[in-house]
């Protein structure tokens, strides 16, 4: 068998798997943002017609999976794996979604870096010959995540300007060994980085070094530079984390990332939407990737994309106990 591993952390696919379809469902605030008319479904109801925010999130993810299969004309019976991830304890949203489909289920947790991790694993299963069609799905909900990680939704407080807001929505994509669409050409799975950050309101600072580590590792492993890509887009560093990443790249690696570096957490909202430094959550990168960027990749205005989804791997308990926030970043390169 031909070895597909490149360098320390990268896998380069010999027959790059194809993202044949994607479906996005965006929450109320996201629908009012700059990408509002690019989502497949925009909902103005945070409860999504359900009895709780948790059920709303699960229903969104279930709908996203159903709709992407309808879009591509595939039946759940012929899907080899469902790979899903969310932010709630025991990834309960993914578990409930998976219970609605007759598809073998891989539940994953890697906080907000889930979109690239799930896609990377799907691509490895397909290029390895273990599957021909895999659905990946991620979701997050502002109200269900806030209660778990921070305070009740209606609790009144002032947030610091570098804080971020969890995005609401769900997204699903079908990745397959044949069909039309942009291809996942390689993936670089990240290592867990400890920065000593303890402030759960400052996720950008906790995650920026992990993003840098994975980006540089990707370039080293397959001998590329930042110029290779039209766009390098991080998952949810926010304004402050984005600035830190550029500064770290310049100061530590003598690498200029400014020209083609963007962040999904910044792209998802307008400045006046009250989200402070930007969005976060599993679905933050998925909503941007599978709406705007996916369209651009299909149309050709974008040819080479590196998605570096970032995740803060803390728990509410570890934060209350004053422990540092471990963080990670996973990269996938998507090319036409």
């Amino acid at each position: 068998m031909k070895n597909k591993k490149r360098g320390k952390q990268t896998v380069q696919f010999s027959v790059p798997p194809i993202i044949v379809g994607a479906y996005t469902i965006a929450g109320p605030l996201e629908s009012e943002g700059p990408l509002g008319n690019l989502f497949d479904r925009a909902t103005s109801d945070g409860m999504y017609g359900q009895k709780s925010f948790e059920k709303a999130e699960a229903k969104m993810m279930e709908d996203a999976v159903n709709e992407v299969l309808r879009k591509t004309g595939d039946l759940p019976e012929y899907i080899d794996f469902l790979i899903a991830s969310d932010l709630l304890d025991q990834i309960i949203v993914s578990n409930y979604t998976a219970s609605q489909f007759p598809i073998p289920f891989l539940g994953m947790y890697s906080a907000c870096s889930a979109t690239s991790l799930c896609s990377a694993v799907a691509a490895m299963l397909i290029d390895g010959g273990y599957a021909s069609k895999v659905v990946v799905a991620t979701s997050s909900h502002n109200s269900s995540a806030e209660r778990q990680f921070r305070y009740p939704v209606e609790y009144g407080m002032q947030r610091p300007p570098y804080s971020q807001s969890t995005a609401t929505g769900a997204a699903a994509a079908l990745i397959a060994d044949s069909g039309e669409g942009p291809k996942i050409t390689s993936c670089t799975l990240g290592r867990v980085i400890e920065t000593g950050s303890t402030d759960p309101f400052n996720m950008g600072a906790a995650m920026a070094p992990a993003a840098l580590d994975t980006i540089v590792q990707h370039f080293e492993d397959i001998s590329r530079g930042p110029d290779y890509y039209d766009l390098i887009v991080t998952g949810d560093l926010g304004q402050f984390g984005h600035q830190l990443l550029r500064d770290l790249a310049r100061e530590q690696m003598n690498m200029e990332l400014a020209a083609n570096l963007a962040d999904c957490g910044i792209m998802l909202y307008d400045k006046d939407q009250g989200v402070h430094a930007g969005g976060s959550g599993c679905v933050c990168s998925a909503l941007v990737l599978f709406s705007k960027l996916y369209r651009q990749l299909r149309q050709g205005s974008l040819s080479r994309l590196l998605l570096v989804a970032t995740g803060a791997l803390h728990s509410p308990t570890s934060c209350h106990q004053g422990e540092a926030i471990p963080s990670i970043a996973h990269a996938i390169s998507i090319e036409r």
Partner: peptide, 26 residues
């Protein structure tokens, strides 16, 4: 402790000082 990434040659304390100096002020 050092940050466990060979790409960031800062200790955790140095990095937190950098973060504190750069973060938007309230």
């Amino acid at each position: 402790k050092p940050i466990n990434s060979p790409r960031v040659k800062l200790s955790q304390k140095q990095y937190q000082q950098m973060v504190d100096a750069k973060k938007p002020k309230v």
